[in-house]
């Protein structure tokens, strides 16, 4: 299982933090669960799922790189997690998805990078507003944690200022 980290350490060695991924078998998701839904499923059946998981559970959405985050812009208060998929670490669309969620739509909750999540992109992902990282299996947790500090400063504003409030203006 991939390990789940945030910038302060390991969140869950099993990589899920208790979230169950819905892949078509509703029976596998008990009442009260934290469930991660594909975008289409969430858009069509969020009411049903909300009832199913109840007050004890929680809903999350998993976005593929081509999913438009505008489609959940009005539902962000229903979501405890948004996971953005990186099918390959070279596919950079997820960075814009994260930026839009934070900057444009004001999402304040957990934003998780999943898929091909590697040490060498953690710094960029973190700056783009991701807060948790489901590391690819072969990645060293220790080295991934060090990656948050690859640079102590940077030139441009980015979406992380909504999360950590430490961004510096251009050439501060």
């Amino acid at each position: 299982m991939p390990k789940l980290i945030n910038r302060y350490g390991v969140v869950d060695v099993n990589g899920t933090d208790g979230w169950l991924e819905y892949t078509g078998d509703a029976g596998a998701i008990p009442a009260g669960a934290k469930v991660l839904l594909p975008l289409t499923e969430f858009r069509e059946f969020s009411g049903t799922w909300q009832k199913h998981v109840g007050a004890k559970g929680a809903l999350g959405v998993r976005l593929t790189p081509s999913d438009d985050p505008a489609l959940i812009a009005n539902d962000l208060d229903k979501l405890a997690l948004i996971a953005v998929e990186f099918p390959a670490f070279t596919d950079g669309r997820g960075y814009s998805t994260a930026t839009l969620l934070r900057e444009r739509y004001g999402y304040k909750g957990e934003l998780r990078a999943v898929g091909d999540v590697l040490r060498d992109q953690i710094f960029l992902m973190s700056r783009s507003g991701f807060t948790t990282f489901a590391l690819r299996n072969d990645q060293s947790v220790e080295k991934a944690l060090a990656a948050f500090n690859d640079f102590s400063s940077y030139y441009q504003h980015a979406a992380d200022r909504f999360v950590y409030q430490h961004a510096l203006p251009l050439a501060a």
Binding site: T90, Y95, Y154
Partner: peptide
Amino acid sequence: EIIRQWSTIHPEFAFLP
């Protein structure tokens, strides 16, 4: 130079098409 600074290690645009 402003463009150089802005584009240097821009987190959103390091993996463009």
